[in-house]
Each structure stands twice: as structure tokens, then as C-alpha cells.
Simulated assay, not measured.
Amino acid sequence: MLNWDKGKDEKAISSANYIQDMGKEMDMICEMLSEETKYFDTKKFFDKIHEYIVKNDRLIYTHITNYIFVLSDEEFGVLQTNIDSVVNYMYGDQYNQDYSKLLEDRNEKRSLERTQRTVLKMWDHVNLARRQYVMFHHKDEDYSKIVDEKMEIAGAKISKEMNVQLISLVAIFTALSFLVFGGISSLDNIFAGAKDIPILKLVVVGSIWGFCIMNMLFVFMFFIAKIAKLNLSSTDDVNASILKKYPLVCWCNFVVVSIFILSSWAVYISGEELSVRLYDLIYKNQTGFFVAGTFAIIVVIVFAAKKIYDNIKN
């Protein structure tokens, strides 16, 4: 029975054997480079490379890399010293003397130059493989050292941020407690004399107190936000007006100021004894005065509210 794949099998086996032989020769070349420097013969090594490259045409870098990766620092130092000496030998006077006859032949000279380039490639790959080994090969101690250094830096940064935040929180609650309890104490003093103060005047004083306390709280929170690098604004637009940035505070101030104006007007009328005359006038025209007064107050409040809303919106 004929074997149709016989030729292919022989060719595959032949290729495999050829690559294996190249690998064995590369291992021998690497072992030559690992010889002690005082016994290392640069010319002998160059002849070996020349013989190899003429026969096999190229280097097998995988074998070089695998060989470099298993060397200790001391063994690699010997290998690097030896290959450096080969490179120096190739471009020295001794090389020209040893190969003077071959250099006279054009073909031989070209073959030697090719060997020189091969040695340079091997020198470059040896250093590259060692560099890769140093960069990517870390022991557990190396990783522990790296992690410890990173954690120390991160821990210092976190500790600093926590200290800043802790100081900010303590400052906020301390100042807030003084402000709130001081405000409550002052309000208590206001209401303590409520029996001797007319209700309208009490409303006026209370409005002033509310306006001051509310704005003091806002200013306090504003500066605390600056220290803590927080944003109290309702918009990110730096060119926006105060009404648009802090609408809640503006509306609260609007309400308190409105109460203050109305109560102050009522106190003025009462103090000028206009209330008696006004009372007689109102008594005679109760319905009309009520409608007109209510309408006027609503118009003023709505107009002011619309102005604030339009400013915030636009």
C-alpha cells in the first residue's frame, strides 16, 4: 500500500530536526559566553558565531532570552563582559590582523561583516532581555515594598484630608452652636419684655432679629463652605447674580423684609394717631378700603416676587 504522506512527514521531521539543531547550537554559543572572563577567547567565539550564521542564516532569540532569564546577577555580569569584549575585538586592530587574508577576498569580507552585524544583534538582544527580566521579574519582597510605599503615601494623604475635614466639622459645630444659642438667648430677652412692648413693636424687633440671625448663618455657612471647598450655589455659572446663586436666602430675606416694612408702617400709623382717623374712615367705607388695601398689598408682593423669580430664571 502506497503512503501518500511519506514525503510530507519526512519534510516535517527534517524541519523539526533542523530547528532543534539550531537551538542546540544557540545554547552552546550562550554557554561559551558564560565562560569565565580570564579563559574566554574572543576569536574562538567569533569563529563559532561565523560558522553558525553561515550555516543557519539567523539567530534564535527565544533561546537567548530563556538563557538570560535563568542567570544570576553575577553570571549575567560575566556574560555581558564577554560579549562586550567580542564587540571591542571586532572593531579593533587585532581583528584586522587575524582576518587579514579573508578580508582581502570580497565574498569573505562580506560574510565577516554579516557576522559582525549578527554579534551586534546578539549584544543588543542580551541587554534587552536582561532589561525585560529586571522590569517584569519582581519577588514578593519587591511587591511588598512597592505596596508599602504606595500605602504610606496614600495614608498620609488620607490622614491629611481627614484632619482638615475633622477641623472643619469641629469649627462648624462650635461656631454654629455659639451662633444658634446666642440667637436663642437674644430672642428670649426680646420675649421676656413682651408684656411691656406693644405687639407691633415686638414684630418689628423680631423681624430685625430674624433678618440678622438668618444672614449671619448664611455668611457663616458661606465661609465654612469656602474652607471645606464645597459649593452652596444653585448654579455653576460664575457670572450669575446673587439672586440666582442663592434663591432660598433671597426669598427668606424678602419675606422678613416684607414683614418688617408692614409692621413698621403699622407702628408709624399708630404713633402718629392716624389710626383713629383711619379707623373712622375705614368704618365708614369698610368694604372699599378692605378691597383696595388688600389689592395694593397683593400687587406689591406679587410684583416683588415676580422680579425676584425673573432674575433667578433669566
Results as ranks from 00 to 15, higher is better:
residue 211 F to H: 01
residue 42 T to P: 00
residue 28 M to D: 09
residue 286 Q to E: 08
residue 66 N to P: 02
residue 161 E to I: 10
residue 162 M to V: 13
residue 236 D to E: 07
residue 184 I to C: 11
residue 80 Q to V: 12
residue 261 I to A: 14
residue 222 F to V: 05
residue 186 S to Q: 13
residue 160 K to A: 12
residue 65 T to Q: 13
residue 50 H to E: 10
residue 89 Y to T: 01
residue 163 N to T: 01
residue 47 D to R: 09
residue 283 Y to C: 07
residue 184 I to A: 11
residue 96 N to P: 04
residue 83 I to H: 00
residue 259 I to V: 00
residue 52 Y to E: 14
residue 61 Y to R: 03
residue 57 D to L: 02
residue 93 D to L: 01
residue 201 K to Y: 04
residue 110 R to C: 06
residue 165 Q to R: 08
residue 110 R to H: 12
residue 31 E to A: 09
residue 179 L to D: 08
residue 101 K to M: 07
residue 103 L to S: 06
residue 33 L to E: 02
residue 121 K to W: 11
residue 193 G to Y: 11
residue 108 E to G: 13
residue 133 Y to M: 07
residue 112 L to E: 06
residue 168 S to A: 04
residue 150 K to L: 15
residue 3 N to S: 04
residue 81 T to C: 09
residue 85 S to C: 08
residue 29 I to Q: 11
residue 272 E to Y: 10
residue 175 A to R: 12
residue 284 K to I: 05
residue 168 S to D: 03
residue 105 D to E: 04
residue 159 S to Q: 03
residue 10 E to Y: 14
residue 202 L to F: 01
residue 219 V to D: 08
residue 72 S to K: 13
residue 117 R to C: 03
residue 263 S to A: 15
residue 167 I to V: 05
residue 257 V to H: 12
residue 82 N to G: 11
residue 5 D to F: 11
residue 66 N to Y: 10
residue 204 V to Y: 04
residue 279 Y to G: 05
residue 300 V to E: 09
residue 110 R to N: 10
residue 99 Y to S: 07
residue 198 P to C: 02
residue 265 W to L: 14
residue 144 S to K: 13
residue 92 G to D: 02
residue 49 I to E: 07
residue 226 K to S: 00
residue 47 D to Q: 07
residue 178 F to W: 02
residue 289 F to L: 09
residue 112 L to H: 10
residue 268 Y to R: 08
residue 16 A to Y: 13
residue 2 L to W: 02
residue 128 L to E: 13
residue 255 V to I: 15
residue 208 I to E: 00
residue 26 M to D: 01
